[in-house]
Amino acid sequence: MNYFFYLMVPLILFFVLLYLFAEKRKLEKRFKITRTDFKDLEDTDEVHVYGRTKLFKPTFSPISKHKCCYYQCTVFQTSRFGKNDVIKNNSSDWEVLKNEEYIGDFLLEVNLEPVLILTKNSKSLLKVNVDTHSEKLFDTATFEQYWPNVKSFLEKHGFRVSNVYDKNEKRVKEILVANDEQLAVVGKGTWMRTAEFPDIAPYIDNEKVYVISGTEKSPVVFTNINSLLWG
Rank of each mutant, 00 (worst) to 15 (best):
V221I: 15
K208Q: 13
P219Q: 09
D199I: 05
V186I: 12
V211W: 07
E196L: 13
G214F: 02
G189E: 11
V185Q: 10
F197Y: 14
D199R: 15
T190E: 12
F222P: 01
V211T: 05
Y203S: 14
Y210C: 04
G214A: 09
T190Q: 12
T215C: 05
S218V: 10
K217N: 07
I212K: 00
S213Y: 12
V211Y: 08
E196K: 05
F222R: 00
P202M: 00
G189Q: 11
T190L: 05
D205G: 08
V221R: 00
M192R: 15
G189R: 14
G214Y: 04
M192P: 13
V186D: 03
P202R: 03
E207K: 15
R193Y: 11
K188W: 01
A184V: 15
K217P: 01
F197E: 08
I212L: 03
T215H: 06
G189T: 12
V221H: 04
I204R: 08
P202N: 01
A184F: 10
V186H: 02
D205S: 10
V185D: 06
A184S: 14
G189C: 12
V220K: 01
V211F: 09
V186W: 09
G187R: 11
V221P: 03
V186P: 03
T215N: 01
G187T: 10
V220W: 00
T194C: 03
V209M: 07
P219C: 09
T194Q: 03
T223M: 01
K208C: 03
A195Y: 06
S213A: 08
R193K: 13
P202S: 02
G187D: 08
Y203K: 15
D205E: 13
M192S: 13
A195H: 07
E216V: 15
V209R: 12
T215M: 04
I204A: 03
D199V: 07
P219R: 07
G189P: 11
A184E: 13
N206V: 11
F197V: 06
N206P: 06
D199L: 15
D199P: 10
Y210F: 14
I204P: 06
I200C: 09
E216F: 13
R193E: 14
V220C: 02
V221S: 07
E207I: 02
K188A: 09
P198H: 03
V209F: 09
P198F: 02
S213G: 07
P198D: 04
N206H: 14
G187C: 09
T215E: 05
F222Q: 00
A184K: 04
V186G: 04
Y203F: 14
V220T: 08
G214W: 02
F197N: 05
V211M: 09
S213C: 06
T223Y: 06
E196I: 06
A201I: 14
T194H: 03
D205W: 00
I204E: 12
T215S: 11
P202E: 01
Y203A: 11
P198Q: 05
Y210I: 01
V185M: 12
V209Y: 14
V221D: 08
F222L: 09
V209I: 14
P202G: 04
M192I: 08
T190R: 10
F222A: 02
